[in-house]
Design a protein around this nucleic acid. Structure first.
Length: 491
RNA sequence: CGGGGAGUGGCGCAGUCCGGUAGCGCAUCUGGUUUGGGACCAGAGGGUCGCAGGUUCGAAUCCUGUCUCCCCGACCA
C-alpha cells in the first residue's frame, strides 16, 4: 500500500475513489457497477440502519419484506413509472443452465425460457401496491405504514462506489392513507426524519425542499428531498420522500370503503435512503489524510495505541489500558486496543486516521510515569496530554464535541459556498469558478430549467421549504418569479 | 453508446517496439533487532502473463478473434 492519498484539490474524484478503497469501505466486484461492501464500511452502514430503523419504528412503521422479482407486466401499470425505470432494468428471462454441449462451462438452457420475464426490482412500488390491493378494504385498514430494507438494481451506465452502483442497499417506506392530507403529512414527516438523521447522526447539514416536476420521482405527484453540499461544491441528494397521490392505487386498483360506505382510491407515499448516504458521509467531512467519521456513526470511536520498549513495559501499559477501556465501555463508547506488534505506532496512527477513528489515545513509558495519556482528535488533528484520572468522561465530552464541531464546519462550508445570484452571467461565472449552491430566481417553467441544465449542467436541486417570498425576475428568461430556488451541479 | 486507458504472484507496476522460457516495490511467512508519527537485517513461499486460435524450433512479446475492468461524457438515488 502506498502512503499518501491523492489530495482533494489535486483530483477530487480520484481522492474519493482511493479513499473508499484504502479505508476498507468497499471495493469493485467482478461485475461491472457492483460493489463489495467490506466489513468496516458495512459497520458504518449498520449504524445508519440502526438509527434510521429506530426512527421509523418511533413514527409508527413496521418492517416487512417483498420479493426481489417483479413480473414485467407490473412495471407498465403506472405509465410514468415505467417511463422512468424501463431503461435501467435487469431482466430475468431463463431459469436454468446446462453444460455447454460444444465445450467447457455452462450455457443458458434455451428450453428454460420464462413465460413472462421477471424484472429485478429497481424499486418496489409495483409489487407492494399489487399486494396492498389484498390488504386494504376498509378505512380501518388504514393507514398502512410499512418499510423494507432491501437491495435494488438499476442498470446505470456509469457507476461510482456508493454514489451510484448498479446494485445498492436501501430502505424504502411505502404507506397507504385514507386522505390526501394524511399522505402529504406522512411524506413531510419522513422528510423531517431524514433531515434529522442527516444532521444529528451524519453531521451533514441539509436543505429540505421540493423537486421541480422535471426532477420528480417517476410516478409521484410531489417529491420532497434533502440536499447536501459536498466539499467540491457539488450537491448530493441524500434522501427523498414522495407523495404518490392515488397514482399507484389507480394502477393496481387499491380501493377502500370509508365511514360513509363510499369507495375511493387509497393515497400513497414512498420514501427512501440508500448506501449513497455513505458517499455523502465520506465527502462531507473527510480530508487529505483520510476519513473523518462522526462519532455517532464510527464503528470504532476510540483507538488506543501502546508505545513500548519491551514486553514488560507493554504488560504495564496493557494493564492501565484495560482500566481505561472498562471505563469507556461503561459509558457506551466503542474502543479498540491495538497492541499488535507488526506495525510501529507511527504506522498505526496513520492507519487509524485513514479510517477516520474520531479519537486516538496513545500511552507510552512517559505516560506511565506521569499518569497521563496522549489524546488526539481526528477532525482537527490536534493532540494533548491528559491525566488518566477521569479520562473516560473527558473522552465522552470530546466525542460530543467532535460530533458537533464537524457539523458546524460542514454548515459553515455550505454557507460560504452559497451565493445569491441575479444574473445569468454571474450564475455561469460562479459555477465555473467556485461551484456551490446558487440561490436564484426561476420562472417556474420546465423549458427554462432544461435550457439552464443544457447550458450549464446545473439543475434545480429543490425549491426550499423555507423559501422566502421575494419578488424578482428569472435569471434566464427575465420573467417574474416569487422566490429563489437552489441551483447546483449535482452527483 | 461515443472518447481514452488497462488486463503479468494478494496489491501496485516493469518487461511487449527488437520473440529465447518472467522481474521489481509493497504485502505475506520464519528468525532477530526495533517501537513517542508510515522501522531494519537475513532468509522463504507465491505467477497456465484475461481467454481462444494462429505464426515459429521457441510467444508475456508477433498476427487474428474475443471477453472484462477502469476513467471522461450523455441517463439516474
Amino acid at each position: 500500500m502506498s502512503k499518501a492519498l491523492p489530495t482533494r484539490s489535486e483530483n477530487y474524484s480520484e481522492w474519493y475513489n482511493e479513499l473508499v478503497k484504502r479505508a476498507d469501505l468497499a471495493e469493485n466486484s467482478p461485475v461491472r457497477g457492483c460493489m463489495v461492501i467490506k466489513p468496516y464500511g458495512y459497520s458504518i452502514w449498520e449504524k445508519m440502519q440502526r438509527a434510521l430503523d429506530d426512527m421509523f419504528k418511533e413514527t409508527g412503521h413496521t418492517n416487512a419484506y417483498f420479493p426481489l422479482f417483479i413480473p414485467k407486466s407490473y412495471l407498465s401499470k403506472e405509465a410514468s413509472h415505467v417511463e422512468g425505470f424501463a431503461k435501467e432494468c435487469a431482466v430475468v428471462t431463463h431459469y436454468r443452465l446446462k453444460n455447454d454441449p460444444n465445450g467447457k462451462g455452462v450455457v443458458v438452457d434455451p428450453e428454460a425460457k420464462l413465460e413472462e420475464e421477471l424484472i429485478v426490482r429497481p424499486t418496489s412500488e409495483t409489487v407492494i401496491w399489487s399486494t396492498y390491493k389484498n390488504w386494504i378494504q376498509s378505512y380501518r385498514d388504514l393507514p398502512l405504514l410499512i418499510n423494507q430494507w432491501a437491495n435494488v438494481v438499476r442498470w446505470e451506465m456509469r457507476t461510482r462506489l456508493f454514489l451510484r452502483t448498479a446494485e445498492f442497499l436501501w430502505q424504502e417506506g411505502h404507506t397507504a392513507h385514507a386522505t390526501a392530507q394524511e399522505a402529504v403529512a406522512e411524506t413531510k414527516q419522513m422528510l423531517e426524519v431524514y433531515a434529522q438523521f442527516a444532521e444529528e447522526w451524519m453531521a451533514v447539514p441539509v436543505i429540505k425542499g421540493v423537486k421541480t416536476p422535471n426532477e420528480r420521482f417517476a410516478g409521484a405527484e410531489d417529491t420532497y428531498c434533502i440536499e447536501a453540499m459536498m466539499q467540491d461544491g457539488k450537491a448530493l441528494q441524500a434522501g427523498t420522500s414522495h407523495f404518490l397521490g392515488q397514482n399507484f392505487a389507480n394502477a393496481f386498483d387499491v380501493k377502500f370503503q370509508d365511514k360513509e360506505g363510499k369507495l375511493d382510491y387509497v393515497w400513497g407515499t414512498s420514501w427512501g435512503v440508500s448506501t449513497r448516504l455513505m458517499g455523502a458521509l465520506i465527502m462531507a467531512h473527510s480530508d487529505d489524510a483520510g476519513l473523518v467519521l462522526p462519532p455517532k456513526l464510527a464503528p470504532i470511536q476510540v483507538v488506543i495505541v501502546p508505545i513500548y520498549r519491551n514486553d514488560e513495559q507493554l504488560a504495564q501499559i496493557s494493564e492501565k489500558v484495560a482500566e481505561i477501556t472498562k471505563d469507556l465501555k461503561k459509558l457506551g463508547i466503542s474502543v479498540k486496543y491495538d497492541s499488535s506488534d507488526n506495525a510501529k505506532p507511527g504506522f498505526k496512527f496513520a492507519e487509524y486516521e485513514l479510517k477516520g477513528v474520531p479519537v486516538r489515545l496513545a500511552m507510552g513509558g512517559r505516560d506511565l510515569e506521569n499518569g497521563t495519556v496522549e489524546v488526539a482528535r481526528r477532525d482537527t488533528k490536534t493532540k494533548e496530554t491528559v491525566s488518566v484520572e477521569g479520562i473516560a468522561a473527558y473522552v465522552q465530552n470530546l466525542l460530543n464535541d467532535i460530533q458537533e464541531s464537524i457539523y458546524k464546519k460542514a454548515l459553515q462550508f455550505r454557507e460560504e459556498n452559497t451565493y445569491k445570484v441575479d444574473s445569468f452571467e454571474e450564475f455561469n461565472n460562479i459555477l465555473d469558478t467556485k461551484g456551490g449552491f446558487i440561490l436564484a430566481h426561476w420562472d417556474g417553467t420546465s423549458e427554462t430549467e432544461e435550457k439552464i441544465k443544457e447550458e450549464t449542467k446545473a439543475t434545480i436541486r429543490c425549491i426550499p421549504l423555507n423559501q422566502e417570498a421575494e419578488e424578482g425576475v428569472c435569471i434566464y428568461s427575465g420573467k417574474p418569479s416569487k422566490g429563489r430556488v437552489v441551483f447546483a451541479r449535482a452527483y
